Computed example of a mutant assay.
Amino acid sequence: MTLFHKLAMVSAFALTAAGAEAAPVLRGDITVLNTVVTVADMFDEAGALAEKPIFSAPAPGTTGTVDLASIRAAAARVGIVSFEANGLSAINVTRAGATVDERTLTGLILSDLSGRGLMGPGVNATVRFSRFIDPVQVATSGVAVRLDQLRYASGGRDFTARFVLAGQNRVLDLSGTIDMTVDMPHLAANMPAGTILLPEHVVMRPVPASQADAFGYVPLDQLVGMSLNRQSREGMLLRASDISPPLAVSKNELVTIIYRRGPMTLTVKGQAITSASRGAGLQVLNLASKRVITATAVAPGTVEVTSGSVSLAGL
């Protein structure tokens, strides 16, 4: 073997040894997910010791500071005799955490009520706990909190609930009330009988869900264009019995009577004896013949007699 080959081999072995013995390099501030800080969390180039625990992690959602002397002592205990400090004198170790607060717990309760069919579409629920809930930081591994039990009777208000916090050997036992409401239409102002309802005449206000069915809910789109049956006050809850289709013909109103038979159309003047909405029947006096006939309101001021209901002579 030539001298050149010997030198090349020595250099290769030296490089291999240097690579194998490369010292771990201390990282800067770190964030961990678990209850312990491992060598791999703390150092780059951790090697075979990567999974070794070196410190206990702080509580979820908190940060602890570790000085360089403490790091050297802990590293020596797991077999790291030297490492590159990277110019650091201390590092901050943060434990990732999830916040469990009143909003989180309320969401779990509402989700459970919805899943059990106790809170249908259009129902709003307000959850009030009997005591203040201090926000809690829990581990981020897995589900932060789960609802273990909810006791609530349909139509009632009181509830009790048990929650299990992630990574903690404790539960939250809470109680409170749940108020369920449905937004229902109310009059925005005092209005006379016969008012044709427009969108601005109606405001939606909450009504206890347990009473909504008894009140007879009418959707807003079915109110607009309808007529008030009587004089009504501001804030009145609108029910199906409070409205009706607007009148096309009013009592004593002069009207045009239309009679069609085949290609022939006859019109005469008349006077309404009764009122009617579009499509409804009414009694009309033919002013020419002085006969009372039955007709159908087809438009404002216009009624129609079908060929089957009366003969031409009967007009």
Score class of each variant (00 low, 15 high):
residue 122 G to F: 04
residue 246 P to R: 10
residue 108 L to W: 02
residue 123 V to H: 00
residue 123 V to A: 04
residue 285 L to K: 09
residue 310 V to Y: 05
residue 17 A to W: 11
residue 138 V to R: 04
residue 83 F to C: 03
residue 249 V to R: 07
residue 187 L to P: 03
residue 273 I to S: 08
residue 279 G to R: 07
residue 76 A to C: 10
residue 243 I to H: 03
residue 21 E to P: 01
residue 106 T to V: 13
residue 280 A to V: 12
residue 34 N to K: 15
residue 33 L to S: 06
residue 155 G to S: 07
residue 161 A to C: 07
residue 298 V to P: 00
residue 93 V to P: 07
residue 133 I to S: 04
residue 221 D to H: 15
residue 112 D to L: 10
residue 220 L to R: 15
residue 93 V to I: 15
residue 42 M to V: 11
residue 136 V to L: 11
residue 93 V to Y: 05
residue 29 D to S: 12
residue 17 A to L: 15
residue 44 D to P: 03
residue 229 N to I: 14
residue 167 G to K: 12
residue 82 S to A: 15
residue 264 M to F: 14
residue 224 V to L: 01
residue 309 S to Y: 10
residue 47 G to A: 10
residue 221 D to P: 14
residue 253 E to A: 08
residue 204 M to Y: 07
residue 251 K to P: 06
residue 185 P to M: 03
residue 165 L to D: 00
residue 29 D to H: 10
residue 77 R to M: 14
residue 87 G to E: 09
residue 183 D to H: 10
residue 282 L to R: 01
residue 268 V to T: 14
residue 246 P to S: 09
residue 129 F to Y: 14
residue 66 V to K: 03
residue 173 D to F: 14
residue 19 G to R: 05
residue 253 E to M: 08
residue 300 P to R: 12
residue 254 L to Y: 15
residue 51 E to R: 14
residue 300 P to Y: 06
residue 159 F to G: 01
residue 173 D to W: 13
residue 43 F to A: 04
residue 220 L to Q: 13
residue 149 Q to F: 13
residue 27 R to E: 04
residue 289 S to G: 09
residue 40 A to K: 14
residue 53 P to G: 05
residue 280 A to T: 05
residue 207 V to W: 12
residue 80 I to K: 05
residue 255 V to W: 04
residue 285 L to N: 08
residue 209 A to Q: 11
residue 286 N to E: 05
residue 63 T to R: 04
residue 96 A to F: 07
residue 4 F to E: 15
residue 47 G to K: 11
residue 275 S to K: 09
residue 229 N to P: 04
residue 104 T to R: 08
residue 76 A to M: 12
residue 180 M to S: 06
residue 52 K to Q: 09
residue 48 A to I: 13
residue 129 F to K: 09
residue 78 V to W: 03
residue 303 V to S: 01
residue 115 G to L: 11
residue 185 P to W: 06
residue 160 T to I: 05
residue 92 N to H: 09
residue 19 G to T: 04
residue 59 A to K: 11
residue 37 V to P: 01
residue 198 L to H: 07
residue 17 A to V: 14
residue 236 M to Q: 13
residue 142 G to M: 08
residue 260 R to V: 15
residue 269 K to N: 15
residue 183 D to S: 12
residue 254 L to P: 13
residue 269 K to P: 03
residue 260 R to C: 07
residue 215 F to Q: 05
residue 208 P to I: 12
